[in-house]
Amino acid sequence: MDWLRRVAPYLFITPYALAFTCFIILPFFVAFGLAFVKLELTSQQPAAFVGFDNFREALGDPYFRKSLWVTVYFVVLAVPTTVALAMALAVGMQAMTQRWARNTVRAMLFVPGMLNVAVAAILWQWFFNGEFGLFNHLLESLGLPRLPWISSRALAMPSIVFMTLWWTVGGSAILLLAGLQQIPGELWEAASLDGAGAWKRFTQISLPMVRPVLLFVLVINTIGAFQVFGQTYLMTRGGPELATRSVVQYIYETAFNNYRLGYGAAMSWLLFMLIAAFSLVQFFVLRKVDA
């Protein structure tokens, strides 16, 4: 029985660890190895070890650099707006007086996220269409000028961020609302007795108390934003003039359209390092506030 006692704790982690090993770690090593070989799927040549050549090529590749900037631009636009809007929606829902109304609103905010990316994209592609789209038709009938939503280099990315907000903010808002609702009622009462205003209650009670959830929402959104692909690929194919071609799209095209697996893997590792650096900073900053 003693050995069982010693083994038992490991049994809890075994199922996940097994799946993780087979379908993350193993492919992970394959992907790691790929970055150091020249492998073009269509040729029957075996993979050749080329050292850091793929990384060197990536660092000198203007398309890769361009796609990195595009991705960082998306992250900088999308993550703060998503988290801030999610927070505002969560606070707004918390302030609602009717419970049934709050439930309904929460569900309605969450519903766009249930839509398949392929459908969300074709719907919004039509909304955004410059000449024959819904948005410009509405703008025009209100006497406002038309906008080149996804057809101008300046507006394309903000338009995609706008669509992404609609599509994804509900999930984050639900998590944050759950966090807010955990805060014990006594804290609010005490604050009211002190005569604290709404803003003060938000900064001094809501924000600190909800921090673990906020950290989770922030990290998940950042990781997701760095890997943006589906909505940009389907709505603009990365255009106009590559203004919305993200790193993941470039990796995808390199690995699967041009069949250069090794080079795609090397770029994935560079992206990975960038995301890791960002996430570490977030952990660090939010931990620090904690202390």
């Binding site: 379908f23 990781i223 890997q227 690995a255 990975f272």
Partner: peptide
């Protein structure tokens, strides 16, 4: 586990 979430899923398609 958290770190591996940062690798783009597309990279895993062929190995998987």
């Amino acid at each position: 586990v958290v770190a591996t979430m940062m690798l783009p899923a597309q990279l895993f398609l062929v190995p998987v």
